[in-house]
Design a protein around this nucleic acid. Sequence first.
DNA 1: CTCCGGTATGTTGTATACAAAATATCGTAT
DNA 2: ATACGATATTTTGTATACAACATACCGGAG
Lengths: 223, 223
Amino acid sequence: MKTRVNRSSLSQQAIDLLREQIYDHRLMPGQRLDEAVLAEQLGISRTPLREALKVLSAEGLVDLQPHRGCFVTELTLRDLEEIFPIMATLEGRVAHEVAAKRTAAQLKALDALHEKLEKHAAAGDVNRYYETNYVFHDQLQECAGNRWLQIVIGDLRKLLKLSRHHSLRLEGRLSASLAEHRALMQALHRQDADAAEQVMRGHLLAQLEALRELSLANEVVHG
Amino acid sequence: MKTRVNRSSLSQQAIDLLREQIYDHRLMPGQRLDEAVLAEQLGISRTPLREALKVLSAEGLVDLQPHRGCFVTELTLRDLEEIFPIMATLEGRVAHEVAAKRTAAQLKALDALHEKLEKHAAAGDVNRYYETNYVFHDQLQECAGNRWLQIVIGDLRKLLKLSRHHSLRLEGRLSASLAEHRALMQALHRQDADAAEQVMRGHLLAQLEALRELSLANEVVHG
DNA sequence: CTCCGGTATGTTGTATACAAAATATCGTAT
DNA sequence: ATACGATATTTTGTATACAACATACCGGAG
């Protein structure tokens, strides 16, 4: 018995579902998406599916080639090399803003999230650390109070989620990440905006460096 | 006789046309877009039109409310207050990069564009100055060689074009803008990356300040 | 007169059928 | 045997018809 009535449109549901499937690589980068097949799998017609693909294309998650078909976007290392510095700049700005104008309540909330990070790191639980880290950055952007900055960063983050590799997978990266978070929290407590910005930039660029190393290791194995 | 065969899809044509109409305010901010009416005007069916609206919605040019309708986005002064600092940061980064690694040929091309700016400013031709200024910034981003940075800045610029006001309309802003461009060119010649970044940030924030003043003047008149 | 509810109308959302374009297949000629 | 080209097939792009939802209008009760 279907108690839950689906409130949102089929195209919106398709967007959400496909995004998720792209993120966890059930739909693999480079894979071709046949409209008829996909529509059948989702149990909807091609009309709302095509609208969904247009949106995902605008987000950069798929590549929509006229009269040729739709393909899941493949991020190259070069893309990562370009995107991470932008993220570093933008998130650095967020950290700067928050350090300057955070309230006591906001700081408390961030402290609580940081505590979770400490705990998951101690337990060696990479997945939970990753999730909490995501929430932490999100919360920080919320504190910055710039809606458009949040949107831009969010858009880029969507793209980065296309990458198959997680920097936390690299040996030693987890503890390094935690150390960077500690430094950030200290800067926020001191209301040292410049330091917070610097730490955040370093945090993002360190992730890129980790991905570089992982990429190299991968090449050695596969290529 | 129609020699030119329209190669691109109707939905793509609709995207381009609507974007243009939104930019030059034939479609005004806040205006409701009735699918049936619009489709009739464009001489196409609702199917490709709806796909176009989805894309424009993802770009932020229209607001697509489920079951309610589609509305041209209205940018508030607050939006501008949020977006310009981001642009300042990103374009500042572009200036930094270009100053650091520009080639002689690139510098020459930029010089040529700057000369045009000087000419149009001297002639008091605001429209041509505006256009050339656009090309100049675009060229600069090209020189930076970061594709994603270009995309992000481009997305934000699309949004800013929604604004009805142009900062150059403000008394004295044209000459100030030119002065800032001169300072930028000098920094690029000197390969002074930090100075270039600073100048560019200031350039963008000065535009915001001009818009603030225009907005105030407008309130006095209308409100 | 105001407020509530039901019906009517119009607009958005979806499915299906058809057109056009690209790709694959197969036969023929060199 | 290979390369070229015409035809067949598949897939994308578009139009139309229908369903679902939201709103506006109208009538009646309090």
